[in-house]
Amino acid sequence: MTKWYAFAGAVLGVVSWATVAIASDQAAADAAAAAPAATQEEAVAADAAAPAADAAVAEEGAVPAADAAVAEEGAAPMEEAAVEPAAPAVEEHAAPAATVNNPAEGWNTLWHHVLIDLYVIGGIFALITIAFMVTYTRKRDDQEGDLPPMNLVLSLTWALIPAFIFMADDFYLAANGWKLWIDQRNVPEGALEIKGLAYMYEWEFEFENGAVLSGNESRENPILLPVGAPIVIRSHSDDVVHSLMFPDFRIKEDVMPGRTTFIWFMDSAPGDHLFTCTEYCGVGHSNMWGRVKTVPATEFEAWIAEKA
């Protein structure tokens, strides 16, 4: 009888895990397609490492094996971490607009890596838990558990080894996150400058030639932006805190009185995108949104000149 509960629990656990995986993977799917070949390889490698580590941990005795697996998984990314983040920072100013890293694409790639990381950790934990749940059910009413006795060495081993695994993973993620961050926060030279203004409940964007465009009106007539060019919006607010988010460009930043904050982004192919407010600002909060449309630069130039 009890076995059945264990089994049902196990199935639920697996199903739940799989569903999260699928549900949150939608956005990553296209990212994966676009990701460079190296990424794919790494992904496969990580996937392959998982069962090995999994097996190693499941057999509680085999600590050294697990350790080895960790060393493999952990060491490589750490080296990568040490070298890479500095590079784009140096290049960035010299780089012509054409070779600027698009942060949104960087985001999609990194997101895919992170998901794999999560599946591996989650999978290991979930499988071990399920294995325990099914194996160690109560056989007799008076049966007590039989956890092996702990001692200092065992105890520290079980603390330090996992701690190092987690730490290695943390540094891997931190290093990659930092790399992307540098792209996100360094505005490429020659970016199109736009001044943003937020107030309850409207956005206003002022272009370099003095044209001022309204967010509310852009729902019908999208604001045009040049495709392939970096665009930076520096904004402040006249009243409360708002936040300017472009979901498709994977970026947002709060907009508040007393400070100016910026976001920058670029689109690699013409398309329609929306922006919206993501900091609670009262009754019209969900009504502070508009549309942009990225078009070839010449089309944009003609359009904006007309608006001046």
Partner: peptide, 19 residues
């Protein structure tokens, strides 16, 4: 947090689990 999780999962190990 990971160490806490390990302690929780480990508590099941060779246990006498009643559901």
């Amino acid at each position: 947090v990971g160490l806490l999780m390990i302690s929780l999962v480990g508590t099941l190990y060779r246990g006498s689990i009643q559901y």
